[in-house]
Amino acid sequence: MSNMKATRDAYGEVLAELGAENGNIVVLDADLSGSTKTAVFGKRFPERFFNMGIAEANMIGTAAGLAAAGKIPFVSTFAIFAAGRAWEQIRQSVAYPKANVKIVPTHGGITVGEDGGSHQSVEDIAIMRAIPNMTVIVPADAAETRKAIRAVAAHKGPVYVRLGRNKVPAIFPDDCYFEIGKGCEVLHGTDMTFVTTGLMTGQAVKAAELLKKEGISARIVHIATVKPLDQEIILKAAGETGAIVTAEEHSIIGGLGGAVAELLAENLPTPLKRVGIRDRFGTSGKAEELLKYFGLTAEDLSEAAREVLARK
């Protein structure tokens, strides 16, 4: 995997492109524009870029007002400060009125690394997913991020797009197809299925290679849009392979694993293992160390696959 790029870097680039294409796009940040990469847009379109200072609640409300005035606001900060600090503003001022606000935080999950547990959002997908009218997207790589951000700009209504800090391997080609609400089969397999989101899809690709050596044929279904969930592709995989492992850089409570568990329990009970952070806060360390520490590596996914296969 030589082609490495952070999803936040792709976001910064595509946002500036969209700014040139659509004069209604405005961007708000809360003193983290260098980290979230919205500074790229800010430099090119200073009159449409609003640094709101370290005041996330007001930033979300301001974005809702800009949307009410016909603008398409993209709002960025770290995931914990967007989804966490400003949750009620997102609920009341954005989701309830179906305001056309795009909340695109970076630094989701534990791969934030050294900053530690205070800065690592492990529950943002769950709390965003619980809000009516909200769409939740977690791209796997830079190419998909570019496509997702373009789709989000064209979509009418509130969206939460969770991006990451670190470079991640390319999974998708530059001209990949992206549609909000559609999952995609990254690898066809017949024995079990990894249902993954965000950077864990890359880990699943490695895990499938490990399993192949053991004669296990793993399918990978990448779910960029955690809500609304592509039920069809997951139920099809459950029916055809009979065993599911979900994986996300997020708590196993309420995120993709939760959503898939709800879907399968009600429609097609299937042996399931949720790989994710097991109801704990993050901690300081290097991103790679943390993936290992929290059990989110290809080896952990392979082990989970063996476990569900044994329950088939």
């Binding site: 405005v26 609640a57 409300g61 301001t62 809702a64 009410a68 009341q92 001022s93």
Partner: peptide, 30 residues
């Protein structure tokens, strides 16, 4: 705002309206 003609935004959870008004004012100025 979804249902009532003439209502610009949703309010009721106190403290959020001035932020939204600011956003509207910024948008109008743009």
């Amino acid at each position: 705002s979804k249902g009532t003609p003439g209502v610009e935004v949703c309010t009721g959870s106190l403290g959020q309206g001035l932020s939204m008004a600011n956003g509207i004012a910024l948008g109008l100025r743009l």
